[in-house]
Design a protein around this nucleic acid. Structure first.
Lengths: 150, 150
DNA sequence: CGCCTCCGTGCATTTTTATTGCATACTGGA
DNA sequence: TCCAGTATGCAATAAAAATGCACGGAGGCG
């Protein structure tokens, strides 16, 4: 994992559709060497996958929200059970168990408030283990980065 | 944006390294038609980009945190100013202005607590506009999805 | 200090994949 | 029903990726 690998990863994190020859040129390697490095990085699992990133607006999921959740019963098995139910929801983009005043944080991607309403019923109400939850609707996203700085 | 487009997008969101012929076969189209659809989706901006998704553990950023921030001076220009400073930080993966008790939410990707400490000094202390902030360290991530369900 | 091995590199070639031209089939509107 | 616009499949071409092979530098060891 030298300087060239890092440079390659940075380029690929922002645009993985570039040709190998193009990348090779930019990092100062021959195409074959460059390709072999990329393949090595994939096999080592440093590169988890190559994915298409959609424009949320054009995919019809413009509404985002951050929800913090306090459970009635805390501790490992309860937290796990709650997260399992959250993971199954399409609108839940991220689900984390966290330290602090609450037990979990969810990041939602919603079509509209109707979907939000329905989701709240399923995850937070009636016979769920949720004591309270706080919803922060996203007004504006200033940064949303999939790349990990190296 | 018909059923085939959605199917293509779902496949590409999870693995954009597949060959066109392979995709075409799976959605039941000829390679050329399939390719033209994908190109159309890219030009229309539905597909924002193709990106390599790294394994955070192997990229050396295993620590994650969610930070909620309350500003001293609220309102648009102040929030914007704070978010601008957050955006510049490598460790800040996401930065959102939100509704609710706080003004902003940050998602962090950190190397270690030392980096967290340094970041807090720069963003939250001294002459910043931050009144209070609450850090929720991520214990476990149950879901972390880049794909947008269609 | 020299030798040896291993790993990464570059070049040339082969194989695979993407792209394009063209004729045909389909779809929605008058 | 006809027409215009658009998508489709096939075949040919262009481009890119993958591979075999020989060379060269870094590090270990006598």
């Amino acid at each position: 994992m030298d300087r060239i690998d890092r440079k390659l990863l940075n380029l690929l994190q922002h645009d993985a559709s570039r040709t190998n020859a193009n990348l090779a040129d930019e990092v100062g390697l021959s195409p074959s060497s460059c390709l072999r490095r990329i393949r090595r990085l994939r096999q080592a699992g440093v590169i988890d996958r190559i994915a298409a990133i959609l424009n949320p607006a054009k995919a019809g999921r413009t509404l985002r929200a951050v929800v913090t959740v306090e459970l009635r019963l805390h501790g490992e098995p309860n937290t796990r059970q709650f997260l399992d139910s959250a993971v199954r929801e399409d609108a839940v983009a991220q689900a984390h168990a966290v330290t602090g005043d609450v037990d979990a944080v969810l990041m939602l991607r919603l079509r509209d408030m109707e979907e939000y309403d329905a989701l709240c019923h399923r995850l937070f109400q009636d016979r769920t283990n949720v004591a309270r939850y706080w919803t922060m609707m996203v007004i504006r996203t200033a940064k949303d980065e999939t790349a990990i700085p190296l």
